[in-house]
Design a protein around this nucleic acid. Structure first.
Length: 214
DNA sequence: ACGCTGATGAAG
DNA sequence: TTCATCAGCGTT
């Protein structure tokens, strides 16, 4: 049976079914809040509760990577739902998305932040910091903490290495939404979702500045 | 406010 | 082939 230790107690939950992802992206983005992102390395588990997401929806959404059509990079977004789309950005970071909607319609949910639940030591080592807050509060940070890079691009989120399973359900009243972070187009859509008053939500630089009034 | 860093895709 | 752009982060 599965080993049990302080750092890697077994996760009994099964991955969300593919049908979870094969729905309107805004619904998936909201419902992913509270779910558990899991990376399994043998008997060691890294687990985080998703607390911030963003929806990128189709070729009509100018901020969506697939807005200018299907390319080698964006082909995964056009494929079947429930797979990981991981891209490299700003020369240093990776970002994790879950492909949504039906095969042929390009859309995905960016996982922007998680609350560390399990494997904190591993995450701290990869991140090079001991500070719990800030360990996974951002799309680049969480990929670094979870050790996710382009080798996981296309990974099946319904598989057993990198997957998302039911955690808790976040009631609508505890969800917040806002425009998406760090984009220059498509700002009119409030397609960023987060768990209110959760300290692991990134917010992004502009939003932090906005909160402090600068 | 900037430097870091490299893939991407549009322009030529 | 060059070039601006970039769904970010850390330091200043």
């Amino acid at each position: 049976m599965m080993q049990t230790s302080n750092t890697s107690s077994a996760i009994a939950a099964a991955p969300l079914p593919r049908s979870f992802y094969e729905r309107p992206t805004l619904i998936v983005a909201r419902e992913l809040l509270g779910k558990h992102l899991v990376r399994r390395m043998g008997e060691v588990f890294l687990v985080g509760k998703i607390v911030e997401t963003e929806a990128y929806i189709g070729q009509e959404d100018p901020a969506c990577h697939a807005a200018r059509g299907k390319t080698a990079r964006t082909a995964l977004m056009f494929g079947p739902p429930g797979f990981a789309y991981i891209y490299f950005i700003y020369g240093m970071y990776y970002c994790l998305n879950a492909v949504t909607e039906s095969h042929g319609f390009p859309a995905a949910v960016l996982i922007r932040a998680v609350e560390p639940l399990q494997g904190v030591e591993q995450m701290s080592l990869r991140r090079g910091t001991r500070r719990l807050e800030g360990l996974t509060s951002g799309p680049g940070k969480l990929c670094q903490a979870f050790g996710l890079d382009s080798t996981y691009n296309g990974a099946d989120l319904c598989g057993d290495e990198l997957y998302i399973c039911p955690g808790e359900s976040i009631p609508r009243a505890k969800q917040g939404c806002s425009p998406r972070v760090g984009i220059s187009v498509g700002k009119e859509h409030p397609w960023r979702f987060f768990v209110k008053n959760n300290r692991f939500v990134s917010g992004g630089r502009k939003q932090k500045r906005a909160l402090t009034g600068r």
